[in-house]
Design a protein around this nucleic acid. Sequence first.
DNA 1: GCAAGGTC
Length: 868
Amino acid sequence: MAARGGGGRAIRVLNVAEKPSVAKTVSGILSNNQGLRMREGRSRYNKIYEFNYTIQGQPCQMMFTSVTGHLMEIEFEGRYRKWHSCDPVDLFQAPIQKHVPEDKLDIRRTLEEEARKCQWLVLWLDCDREGENIAFEVVEVCSSVNSHLNIWRARFSSLIDREIHQAAQQLERPNQLFSDAVDVRQEIDLRIGASFTRFQTMLLKDAFVFNFSTDGRNLILSYGPCQFPTLGFVVERYWEILAHEPEEFWKIQCSHTTDEGTAKFNWMRGHLFDYTCAVLLYEMCVQEPTATVTKVRQQEKLKYPPHPLNTIELEKRASRYFRMSSEQTMKILVQEQQQHPVWGPYAQQLLDPSSGLWRNPSGGGHDDKAHPPIHPTKFSPGESGWSEDHKKLFELVVRHYLACVSQPAVGAETTVEIDIAGEMFSALGRTIVAFTPTLLTLESGITRPPPLLSESDLLDCMDKAGIGTDATMHDHIKKLTDRFYATKEGSHFKPTNLGEALVMGYDDMGYELWKPNLRSMMEEDMKAVSVGNKRKDDVLATCLQQMKACFLDARVNKVKLFQALEIFFDRTNRTGGDDQHNHGQLVRKCDVCHDSDLVLRKKPDGKFMIGCSAYPQCRNVIWLPGSISEAVVTPTVCNTCTPGPVFKIQFTFRRLEIPPNFNVHHLGCVGGCDDIMRQLIEISGSGHRNFSSTPARGRGITAPSRNDSQNNQQQQATCSFCHQTGHSSSDCYSLTSQNRSARSQRVNSNNGDSPIPCTTCGSPCVLKTANTESNRGRKFYSCQSQGCKFFVCWEDSIPTTRGGGSSSATTTSRRQCGGGGQGGGGGQSGGDVRFVSATGDPVSGRSCFICGDPSHFANACPNRGMRN
DNA sequence: GCAAGGTC
């Protein structure tokens, strides 16, 4: 710390913590609970503590208050807040503002009032990026009323006396770069989330009959950079389960029973999928059954203590051991602890240097900079007023902590390997010399798919991929059920049809928007901003540019979303609200030809028109004012105009092209009842006239053209996917999972004689039959490869004629998959040895090798097994 | 009516 307050007089210091409890605790520590006074602030929860303290020899009169997390929020400027007020793509550049929301205004008043009276501001926010950003929010509020404040940052990671005093004595300056990284995250999250959510919702919500109850709530098909990858994990596992093909395998079981008990030996090949081969080996063992012990290995086994608990690990363990949800766990966490009758003595022993029990905890490799590993802060018997869950959780924290600081457990392990007719088996923990097995059988088993993801698995996936923070992960999981994207069955998550269809739609476009990569890339960029390796504005511009390109492309390919949803849901006769960009949005039935629809379209020059969808056979047209900048058909039906329904249109006019007494926003009707519309046509002319005043912005329809990239020559790299400059396709946020043209070539080149290859892994797809009312009996292809993503397309949408080979599409083998194989599809793993039979013939016409009866296999033979 | 991040 460089500066000091003036002279010997006490200076007034405003201290601000991230939450009320920290303000209270830190005040208690710094004042040593002497002369500590508390008074009310403007906000009910955020008290103000007062005490005297000395910083670097300078007497200080301390005022200590708090905020409750972020003080400010970002939001689009007013005219972009209504869903139909603009094209969702505009949200990638719509102006945004940071403001203190209504429910935080009282906290702002407290800060303003106190800041006016103070010379110093000391920020006691958490020492992570979010905390740094909140610090700057506090600075903004306080500086606005007192520009002379000397601003300091206290850095601490736990509420321990020594650390708090040290932080107060070694004040630093706040770190702008850390805060910048959060500004970038907030803006990207808002723009991507709002644009895709509005797009998806308006496109699909009214276009399908969703056969589930929304409990009276408005259905929102939200997209978020955290919630969607979380859904992705759930769907991906579900697909692995669906794609799992049970496969029979064979293993030789061997055990030896004596008076001391039974030793079970595991076949070191694990299991074989080739029946003939397993039989051959088994027969060799049966004919020559003496087991020779080839190796006895005795070694000391150390069981290392666990790493200290971080919040996520605590949530995972609480979920696994107690079936407590992560949300519950967070709530139950406690601070109080005293001498405990059970673990108290062990703790005392640990602390005794002469016991030699102590060992410094190992590093877990994670550091969020804001919190130390979870540890008991005090002792508590925990008997009074604690719920059972409360006690269990506390015991977990204490026991885990004691384990962390203990020496590893030492055990002895004996491995015995035996040889029967050249086949090796092994057993643990027994010492035997030579023997004839009491049991030697050939057993069959079947591979099982992995289970659905549990909450603990899901938290693990999110943690590994960096999705969310320890405080928000359970919110993202909960959002999946709130949005009807997934259901919780027991402690496992299963995607709903809606959740699966959305992921399928984007996947089929070739996008990885549902995968964690996007968030991981953003997180890397945030880190680069926070250490000064990348500039805030550059990261923002690049990311938004790429996501906008991705958005526009997704809109062009929205038919994929329709196709995916059609598999599960029936269509309504309403088109989606986004349809202006291809087919037009339905306004009413055409009153000239009485056959087709009048639809609202945006022309390439940016002007809007309403014409008959049967053009050029029917040339009916309704003229619109030329001053319209945006027009979107709403679900609202005019109750005056007939024949109905005539859907009202939300218009936005260009301010300079309409008289001042007209509103730029107008929910209008084109059925003839709307005087405002008539007047505006008279004043500004209709859309077919050429106005030179304001060139049309032409947004929304076309993907970024090559001209865009040519205009910007100073950046060399041009992405081959989104055609944006400044990055290559490998760094593109749009993250196509597949080259799109290669993808369509694969489907189109199918000559009908072979099964449709999966566009992801190349393995054959199977034909399935849809079971919804409108598509019942319609066939679609889906990849059945283990661990592969799902490729889906309707059979009748494939342009080529299939020549009698369609039945071959119903058979598939997962071994033909070129890209699958990971993802833990089989419940059985390890030791899989696959044999190709010597003749290469398929194993057919099997009969029991023990008795020769073709009615059963050896595993079901009454004569199976061999006993001494 | 939209995100994710703080926190009560």
